[in-house]
Write a protein that binds this DNA or RNA. Sequence first.
DNA 1: GGAAGGGCTTACCAAAAAGTAGGCGCTGCT
DNA 2: AGCAGCGCCTACTTTTTGGTAAGCCCTTCC
Lengths: 121, 121
Amino acid sequence: MIKLHNKTYTCPVDVSLSFIRGKWKVLILFHLYYFQKRSYSEIRDNLPGISEKVLAQQLKELERDRMIHKTTRSSKPLRVEYALTDLGRSLSPMLEFLSQWGIGYLKTNGIDYLQDQHLYK
Amino acid sequence: MIKLHNKTYTCPVDVSLSFIRGKWKVLILFHLYYFQKRSYSEIRDNLPGISEKVLAQQLKELERDRMIHKTTRSSKPLRVEYALTDLGRSLSPMLEFLSQWGIGYLKTNGIDYLQDQHLYK
DNA sequence: GGAAGGGCTTACCAAAAAGTAGGCGCTGCT
DNA sequence: AGCAGCGCCTACTTTTTGGTAAGCCCTTCC
C-alpha cells in the first residue's frame, strides 16, 4: 500500500486514477487539451448534460489537483479562462489514446465518427 | 451525440470511458495485463479492499463488454482463469501509461516506488 | 469427518456521486 | 428600465456505486 497525502493506494495505477475519477473529469481535460483555453460557459456548452453544480465542482477539484489553471481575465464582470497546467498536459498521451480508441471502437461498430461528425451534436 | 447500443455518448472519449468506469475496473485490467492469466482468488488477493460482490460484478461487466475472457479449467471443483481478450489488450498502451504516470507522480512527491516496492503491501 | 480453499451469490445497508432548481452579483445591450 | 449572459453557489433529492456479511457447492487435505 502506498501512502500519499493521507490517502492509501494499492499501486501506481491507483494513484493516477485518483485524479481522473468523476463522470466528467476526463471529458473536461480532453476538451481543454483540444481547445487550449476555454471559458466556463464554453466548457459547459460542450458537455451536454452536465449540471452547473457538477461542472463547478469538478473544475475546482482539477484545479486543486493542479491539472488545470484558472486565469481571471477581468473581475468587474467576472471573466475567466481555464487551461491545462503542465501536469495536466502530461496526461495528453492518454487523452489522445482514449479519443483514438473510441473512434476505432465506433468504427468496428459501423460508425464513422470522423466522417459523420457533422451529423452529431 | 453518438448513439450506440441504445446509449448516447458526447464524444469518442466518452465511449472509451464507458468501458472503464467503476472503482476497480482499470485495476483489474492492469492486473491481467501484467500477469496474463489469473484465477478469481489471485485477482482478489491482489486488490486489497475489494469485496467479493464488487469483484464478481465488475468481472462480469468486463466479460460482457468483451474486455476479458473467462476460461473454465475444471468444473467438478470449479476452477477458472481470467485473461484479457484482444479488445482488452488493445487498451495496453493506456494501462502502461497510467502505471508509468503514477510512478512518475510518486517520484516527484518523494516516493520511489520502483526502488521501495518491497516496502509496500 | 471436519476444516480450508476456490468461486461465487444474495439480501441488505451506506456512502458517494450526480442531478434539480433556484438564486446572486455584475455588466452590456436595447 | 429590463432582460440576457457570464460565472458561479446552495439546499435538497435521487441515483449509482460500493461495502458487509452471510451462505452455498464442491473438493482436497489432514
